[in-house]
Design a protein around this nucleic acid. Structure first.
Lengths: 153, 153
DNA sequence: TTGCACCTTAGAACGATTCTAGTTAGGTTC
DNA sequence: GAACCTAACTAGAATCGTTCTAAGGTGCAA
């Protein structure tokens, strides 16, 4: 049997630890998802799994990703966009921001030590939005990814 | 006739300037929307307009908001959330971030001088995401709004 | 091995948004 | 101020992503 990467192993362990049953479908979804750093949609994963599980229901993918999200093992990224913009799932549980390519829509993780607001941010919010109590600050870096920058020679 | 606020006047002027026709429906939508700083959904606006325009189509609201957005007179805010999370429209065209209440979902504008990345951010991205070319940095402050903080005495 | 709570499946349902076809009406021109 | 052209309007169907339902299947603790 092929050895699993640390992230896959950790996700499977935590899934089990959370009291969830390890079905063949879930194993397959986790193994695909944990190694995918391109923020796949449910559709993406579903299509890649159809070969191995021709009868798998779409709901199973959603249910599993939902279970992962509830267990804190996955995040959901939703970005303003055109019609049909589906939610994207993120196996990275470390604190991080996102860089989004305006041209191709690619989403990259940008590591962050913490998402906690800086003292400066807290101060600023106290002025601009009195009464609002900040817990975390998320950032979205918008621009062009390397590939799209290159193709605009 | 009632005097219009600066933002309403400006939006109407710019709409006209963009070559769009001033229909009664559009006038009404703009007058409602431009004064609303609570980031209404298309549904919200539609319902508030039904009294005055009982035959108005839902598509008209979307079309108008779309036209405003294309003319740079409105923004679209979409946030990760539960099912049925509709897009919210934002008449504020000044550079700003958003504060989102985790409890009630309220969205507040947080003024920002600019959305351009700081030299520090550019440097950081060069390390973390080589090749990515940042244009703007959006922030989402997550926490509890004043009302929700208060109601958790 | 058994039992049951949790999973899976297929398909219907749902909410948000967009499209289509046909009609109406701004606004520019004469 | 009438005519025209085109953009905008309406109703309703279509589409997309997501969730729900009901019925049968199965991981896994005892």
């Amino acid at each position: 049997m092929k050895a699993e990467t640390p992230r896959t192993s950790a996700m499977l362990r935590d899934l089990k630890r959370a009291g969830l049953k390890m079905t063949p479908q879930r194993l397959a979804i986790v193994r695909l998802f944990a190694e995918d750093d391109e923020h796949p949609t449910a559709q993406d994963l579903f299509e890649r799994l159809r070969a191995a599980f021709p009868t798998m229901s779409f709901a199973t993918v959603y249910n599993t990703l939902d279970a992962l999200a509830k267990a804190g093992l996955a995040g959901i990224v939703r970005l303003p966009g055109k019609r049909g913009d589906a939610a994207r799932f993120d196996p990275n549980t470390e604190p991080h921001h996102h860089a989004v390519c305006d041209a191709c829509g690619a989403v990259l993780d940008i590591a962050a030590g913490t998402l906690a607001p800086t003292p400066g941010a807290v101060k600023k919010l106290r002025r601009t939005a009195p009464g609002f109590h900040v817990h975390a600050v998320e950032r979205i870096y918008r621009g062009l990814c390397g590939r799209c920058t290159a193709s605009r020679s």
